[in-house]
Amino acid sequence: MDRHVISVLVENHSGVLSRISGLFSRRGYNIDSLSVGETEDASISRMTIVVRGDSYILEQIKKQLNKLVDVIKIVSLAPEASVYRELVLVKVEAGEKTRASITGIVNIFRANIIDVSPSTLTVEITGDQSKLQAFIELMQPYGIKELVRTGLTALQRGDQQISQVGQ
């Protein structure tokens, strides 16, 4: 099934997230990830939802979301016309012997070490999914103790804004 990234402007008040996640679960739509936060207008939040499904499912998702009074606008963000980013924090085992080689990989990926302990390094890395995946695979041999990711977030390329896009 195809992966789609949709961006949704919603009213920024309590209960909205549960309405949207409830809609996905009861209609059986699969969410890969959902990230949400306030926008340049504090009364509006923007959700980036990664879903899987064919064109029928995608159309249904958009139409059903649109029925919610709290949903202001929905656009699909096609890969070629958008920038996708995700942030991952990885706590990796790092003793004296391995610390230098991990730091080397971190530099190559333009990641940041944000915390150090005698036995671990915590790395922050941002990028698209293929970059993150490659980095995580390189860290695995050292021993990943913990990993957390924000879920994908995205914007249209160029000067276009979501408020100007036709649905």
Binding site: Y56, E59, Q60, K63, Q64, N66, K67
Partner: peptide, 8 residues
């Protein structure tokens, strides 16, 4: 009147 019914 409900676009979500069309094509469902």
């Amino acid at each position: 009147i409900d676009p979500a019914e069309i094509g469902k």
